Amino acid sequence: MQPPGSVNIRDAKALGQLIRRTRKQQGLTLETLAGLCGLSIRFLSELENGRDSCGFGRIMMVLDALGIDLVAYPTEETPS
């Protein structure tokens, strides 16, 4: 069972949507967020648009700057 308010992230597009939504809720521009996490506006734009090739370490920097915790739960296995 996942905590209230949590979001299932199954692909890069869903992660990008979460990041964009959180950034806008916090009233941040791409430029401001880029300054907060030390990354380029281009990278952030690609991340928000679901580009698959964004590096995990840089993604974690963005999540940290936005105050988003990444928590993973194994999916329940169904018996064969």
Rank of each mutant, 00 (worst) to 15 (best):
Q17T: 11
M61S: 11
T29L: 06
I59H: 01
R23Q: 00
P4D: 02
L44N: 08
R51I: 06
E46M: 11
A72D: 09
E31P: 08
I59D: 00
P4Y: 07
G38N: 09
G5N: 10
I9D: 04
D52W: 08
I41C: 11
R21F: 07
E48D: 00
G35I: 06
A65P: 03
A72E: 13
D11F: 00
I41D: 12
C54W: 03
Q25G: 10
V71E: 08
G38L: 05
R51L: 09
D64N: 10
L47K: 05
K13M: 11
A12F: 04
G67F: 00
E48F: 02
L15N: 04
G27W: 01
R58K: 13
F56K: 11
A65R: 03
Q26V: 08
E48L: 06
E77A: 14
S80M: 11
L39N: 01
I59Q: 05
P79T: 14
P74R: 03
T78N: 10
F43M: 15
S6F: 06
E31K: 11
R20P: 03
S80A: 15
P79V: 12
L47C: 04
M60P: 09
I19K: 04
M61P: 04
L36W: 06
L28S: 01
G16R: 03
Q2D: 14
Q17W: 04
L36H: 05
G27D: 07
I68D: 02
R51K: 15
S6M: 07
G67I: 07
P4H: 05
L33D: 05
G27M: 06
L70H: 09
V71G: 08
C37S: 08
L15S: 09
L18Y: 04
N8R: 15
G35K: 09
A12N: 00
N8W: 15
E76F: 13
E48K: 02
E76R: 12
A12P: 02
E77N: 09
T22I: 01
P74D: 06
L63Q: 06
